[in-house]
């Protein structure tokens, strides 16, 4: 009985996100000529590949009840390291990509280790990680590094033609593959189920004999990996490394995860929802471009507002779930705890 209500709630959140996307895209199509095209829809993916990859990692972190504020600066660090190795050290791309990914995993492992081993709050450790990553960018170089590598240029310029004169970039394929992998891992693997169990109730998960310690470290490694991969994909579009890439991207990522219906308190969420959250984000950006008079900073304000609305919605859904007892329960409920 209880399980059933949980499933409906989950599909309800997904439905709300999907509905929001359809409404926003529909509103854009009605208001602006040339908005409702297949290419414009595919552009949503092309503009947000890095955000989708970041979102997948962040979804795991948030489902487990944690948070990772370092993703933006780790992305930036990945762009710096990749471009520095390519342009200054002339490494082969087949070496650069694994190195950068390994760096991301190591960074995630370091944070996960501190959080798990010493029971530190994820937000303070990853906030320090945010500054560490950003600072390390400047250690690599203070200036922008342009990438002049054939493989990178190829990845930046090649268009994969689909039907009806529409095309996508190779990065979209990477992003979609990451999303599919994320959906599979979260739903059908032991690791994925353990992540949900930790987010639901960590103590219960320990008592059930689940490998909580290992899983928690692994979650941050996944997020680190995704950040590094997102950094590489980011350089496929910008063809450069810059220390101020991805400033504030952590909120964008958290926002898309929340808009995608993942509970910030953990225990519930879906990677597929995150993908739709990212598409909503992309639609807002495109709408602001089409609208023309608003400056791009309105994206940030709108996103902040949407996060607010969705957190409210989550509270409302939870209140409905607990039903009649919610009135008494919410009064006795202790004040919010930090994740």
């Amino acid at each position: 009985m209880k399980k059933k209500s949980l499933i409906t709630q989950r599909s309800l959140s997904l439905f709300v996100t999907l509905g929001l996307f359809v409404v926003m895209f529909g509103a854009g199509s009605l208001s602006f000529i040339g908005f409702f095209t297949l290419q414009n829809f595919l552009n949503l993916f092309m503009n947000t590949t890095y955000l989708m990859i970041l979102g997948v990692g962040m979804t795991f972190v948030i489902i487990s009840g944690g948070i990772d504020l370092s993703v933006g600066s780790l992305l930036s660090l990945a762009t710096m390291v990749a471009s520095s190795l390519l342009t200054k050290s002339h490494w082969n791309p087949s070496l650069v990509i694994p190195t950068v990914l390994a760096m991301g995993i190591a960074f995630g492992l370091f944070q996960g280790f501190l959080i798990q081993k010493f029971n530190l709050q994820p937000f303070i450790i990853t906030l320090a990680g945010l500054y560490l990553g950003r600072g390390l960018c400047y250690v690599v170089s203070i200036d922008t590094i342009a990438i002049d590598n054939r493989f990178w240029h190829h990845m930046a310029n090649v268009q994969i033609n689909l039907f009806a004169n529409s095309y996508i970039s190779p990065s979209v394929i990477i992003a979609v593959l990451v999303v599919i992998a994320g959906i599979f891992v979260s739903r059908s693997t032991k690791f994925g189920r353990t992540v949900f169990a930790i987010g639901g109730n960590e103590q219960s998960a320990v008592l059930m004999g689940l490998p909580v310690a290992r899983t928690k470290m692994f979650i941050y490694m996944v997020s680190g990996f995704c950040s590094a991969l997102a950094g590489i994909v980011f350089t496929f579009t910008t063809l450069s490394g810059y220390s101020l890439n991805g400033v504030g991207m952590e909120l964008d990522t958290i926002a898309t995860v929340v808009i995608g219906g993942t509970l910030l308190t953990g225990g519930m969420g879906s990677v597929l929802g995150t993908m739709f959250g990212v598409l909503v984000y992309g639609t807002i950006q495109v709408l602001i471009v089409f609208q023309g008079t608003l400056n791009s900073w309105w994206t940030r304000i709108t996103i902040g507002f949407l996060v607010f609305v969705f957190v409210l919605l989550q509270r409302a859904l939870r209140a409905r779930k607990s039903g009649t007892s919610s009135a008494t329960q919410s009064r006795a409920e202790p004040l919010p705890r930090r994740s």
Binding site: G248, L251, W298, R300, I303, G304, V307, F308
Partner: peptide
Amino acid sequence: LILFVAGRG
């Protein structure tokens, strides 16, 4: 966090 980024906007 909402104002952290929205505030700058």
